[in-house]
Nucleic acid binder design. Structure first.
Lengths: 134, 134
DNA sequence: GTGTTTGCAAAGTGTTTGCAATTTA
DNA sequence: TAAATTGCAAACACTTTGCAAACAC
């Protein structure tokens, strides 16, 4: 995705395409799905020679999520995780390693037989986020 | 549940039945399923005239959950929620009010039609907690 | 120019930890 | 009396906020 495409994507969501946001967006939307935290984005960019203040990273990710460009996924670790895959899918969390694996949204509940080989099911957390119909 | 029954329940899980833990347990296991936080337990007991240090409440709830007497459920608010219902069930979270409603574990994925009347589905979070088979 | 965003540091929230005093077995 | 637990305050990790300077439209 070109810089101009990223900028347009931000404008489409009523966000000004600042240098900082473009740097974050370039990392997030590089074509591969990612699970990130503010800290991981900050570190990744720093290693690429791009310095942003950590506060800006926190604020930007929150805005991206509010704008619908990211999906916030709590409960995958000690921090708020953002998922660049905003389509319908769910998460496998390795409770020992913290590793997160995407799985497609199935029409049947997952059983141990549906897991990637070498994994066993420990627990399932399902939260349906609802609103009162107005 | 009598005090002695509560004490036995704690002993069965290798926890010494201290006055503080018994007070917490009496509140938690009063026959109705509950979603609590350290703060809510602390406040409830205080209002009942029972003072415990907030640190003790945090530690006790953590121990209860480690022992399998409670289920820790992240992502239901800004804090860690503990559920006294440790059976298979899932949660409806009203994103506007923060209200949490238990729903049974179904053999089919939930659709809007399965929700209590007056609610619409906003999003679904499913996390399968897995372990590597050893 | 006007309103938005940034950087930085400070404040805030929820939770854990260290340690002496107390309690349980 | 040995080991576990408490209370309290301090420490902690993560995240948000306040405000002046910089930037986008």
């Amino acid at each position: 995705m070109t810089n101009e495409q990223l900028a347009q994507r931000l404008r489409d969501h009523d966000m000004r395409p600042t240098k900082q946001r473009l740097a974050i967006a370039a990392h997030l939307f590089d074509g591969t799905d990612k699970h990130v935290s503010a800290e991981s984005v900050y570190t990744t960019l720093k290693q690429a020679g791009i310095h942003l203040s950590i506060g800006t990273v926190y604020n930007s990710l929150r805005h991206f999520a509010d704008a619908g460009l990211l999906r916030a996924v709590p409960g995958l670790g000690d921090h708020l995780t953002y998922d660049t895959n905003i389509g319908a899918h769910h998460h496998l969390l390795d409770v020992d390693t913290g590793e997160i694996i995407d799985i497609p949204a199935l029409s049947q509940p997952v059983t141990s037989a549906d897991l990637p080989q070498g994994y066993e099911l420990e627990a399932v957390e399902i939260t349906y986020k609802v609103k009162r119909t107005s």
